[in-house]
Design a protein around this nucleic acid. Sequence first.
DNA 1: TCGGCATGCTATCATTTCCGTAGCAAAGGG
DNA 2: CCCTTTGCTACGGAAATGATAGCATGCCGA
Lengths: 111, 111
Amino acid sequence: MPTPKPQHRVRGSASGRPIMVLLDLLGRRMTLRILWELRDQRLTFRALQEAAETNPSVLNVRLKELREAHLVALADDGYGLTAHGKDLLQTFLPLNAWADGWARLWDGKRR
Amino acid sequence: MPTPKPQHRVRGSASGRPIMVLLDLLGRRMTLRILWELRDQRLTFRALQEAAETNPSVLNVRLKELREAHLVALADDGYGLTAHGKDLLQTFLPLNAWADGWARLWDGKRR
DNA sequence: TCGGCATGCTATCATTTCCGTAGCAAAGGG
DNA sequence: CCCTTTGCTACGGAAATGATAGCATGCCGA
């Protein structure tokens, strides 16, 4: 379960193209969720575990990957996004509003 | 392996908040990749399978989920993004450029 | 009308990943 | 000392994924 790095073969892509590497990384379970939970706060390992509703084993693996990817870093006051991580998160912030609109697709169909 | 729907409990989130549902859906393997491959073209099942470098079993499961999520639809000329899917993809298009910049983090470290 | 071919897709099984729980080592107070 | 919190690891069962083979349908040319 190697951490995907640009220029290296990753699951689902022999090319190592950065976008493919990134899609592999973000497509692993809890990765997007972890980034999301850290979008506006720093959290300890355990606080992050609760926030993301996951367990320490998966969380630890994801955190290792995200740290190797320079998206997350651990400081005295807990885990938080790096400058790169914050930059990436900017891309995802509109997702929240988008998801709300998307959810309305089901509102009319449930009774 | 139920398709996540807003207002319903999903893996990693009891709340059913749309953003959590979306993060669960997008966090499943190959989901982001499939959306990415369809960003500017329609593909047959087999063409999509090759493009995304995956296998029919996983592809079929993901396509079912994406169709139920109204993000992908099948027409005579193959699979393609729905209006909602295209809208969502707009959010991710900047990722390509971002990933190229991100990859440079490793350029200086490889020798 | 009979191959051939491409289509979407399913079945099967081995492998990988994930999940849930218990617990450890270190650091800091009281 | 002991209690708490920290980050994190070990383990076993469950679930998801991956790879391959193959089916049913429809189309097209001979």
